[in-house]
Amino acid sequence: MTEENLLEIRDLKVHFEIKSGILKRTAGVVKAVDGVDLDIRRGEILGLVGESGCGKTTVGRAILRLVEATSGSVKFKGRDIFKLSSTEMKPLRREMQLVFQDPYSSLDPRSKVGDIVGEGLRVHGVTDRKERYRRVLEALEMVGLQEPHMRRFPHEFSGGQRQRIGIARALVVKPSFIVCDEPVSALDVSIQSQVLNLLKDLQQELDLTLLFIAHDMSVVEHLCNRVAVMYLGKIVEVAEREELFGNPQHPYTQALMSAIPIADPKVKRERIILPGDPPSPLRPPPGCRFHTRCPEAIDICSQEIPQQIDLGRQHLCACHLRQPEPDAVQQPA
């Protein structure tokens, strides 16, 4: 484990069994995450993008052990968290927090904001009420809310403010790592930018490491330092932001980018329209999982699973058709 990586994910698999019938026989296995390797560096915002059902949320939850992984390992600060008991896990849970997508259903409607934000402190042993009050207030102020808001209920807040409460709840226990699962996709556009700016500021001020899960490539480009693209349970491409957006290599990433409507009518692009729908994770196609929709697929794609290779400039890509640049080996990584 290198010092710069806060998290190292190796061959992570999360499979869900589907039971059916009165005997609850296993009718099939949904391979939501099927062999993910990913490093998350200290102090970075790593974007994890992909379409619905690609497994990005499951990756986020498996890292936090909110779903049990089927196999693989996740090392947080060098410790394999899948090997820890729940008592050993508890102090790590304080360090790893989660911000949810839906600011409406993720806040208890019957609790006051002060209690919602302060709950984590109670769980993690801050027994002194005054201390809790001080820390809750501090967290609320960090996200742009004030003292009187502590005594209000979630329904009195707008979507953007609720998302701020959700962020304050994550921050109050002073974590070093936060998984943000689509934190702005339920918000109106004029509110989205407020929350994005807030996340960016907080990350810099508090030196946080963020895993930012999203489907919107424009938002990811704005916020993240590095981006990983997922398709049907696997990571297909990882690179620094400028590299990924300037020089996307995987055919899926290329198609995804060309499909995004750009809010500038003067930009002209060659649009790649992918045929069909993503296959079901219940029956993923053999070989490269993207080959059924890939405009460049050749014979080998349907037979062999491509391995992630470094194309140079720390640009990882899993595609049979992409080879490392010849001079990439000499370049310092």
Binding site: V189, S190, Q192, S193, L196, N197, K200, M217, S218, V219, E221, H222, L223, R241, F245, M257, I260, I262, A263, D264, V267
Partner: peptide, 13 residues
């Protein structure tokens, strides 16, 4: 206020 792909700004309006 909307992020536009290919036009990165430090801060959004």
């Amino acid at each position: 206020s909307i992020p536009v792909m290919g036009q990165v700004k430090e801060r959004l309006e």
